[in-house]
């Protein structure tokens, strides 16, 4: 690990900190969007399965 950090010089903490911040924010953003997408897909599938929105209210075949 020291071999990787040493060439970055005296400001290695700031450089690695910046990249860590980017990774944390973007991974968190992507995870939250994908989780929301999956939740909406599941909710929509459940409603369609129950036949919600159909005038007769019958289950989808």
């Amino acid at each position: 690990m020291n071999d990787l950090i040493a060439p970055l010089g005296p400001h290695a903490d700031y450089i690695l900190g910046s990249y860590a911040a980017v990774a944390v924010v973007l991974v968190g953003l992507a995870a939250s969007i994908l989780r929301d997408h999956a939740a909406q897909k599941k909710a929509l599938a459940a409603l369609e399965e129950r036949g919600a929105g159909r005038r007769s209210g019958r289950r989808a075949s």
């Binding site: 953003l29 909406q40 409603l47 919600a52 209210g57």
Partner: peptide
């Protein structure tokens, strides 16, 4: 790409909202 996924989720959220209201009315 994230924007596209998020838009898809929002469109589905609105469909879920409409279907939930229709189901409640029924």
């Amino acid at each position: 790409a994230l924007h596209m996924v998020s838009m898809r989720a929002e469109i589905m959220r609105r469909r879920v909202r409409t279907l939930t209201i229709l189901e409640a009315e029924r």
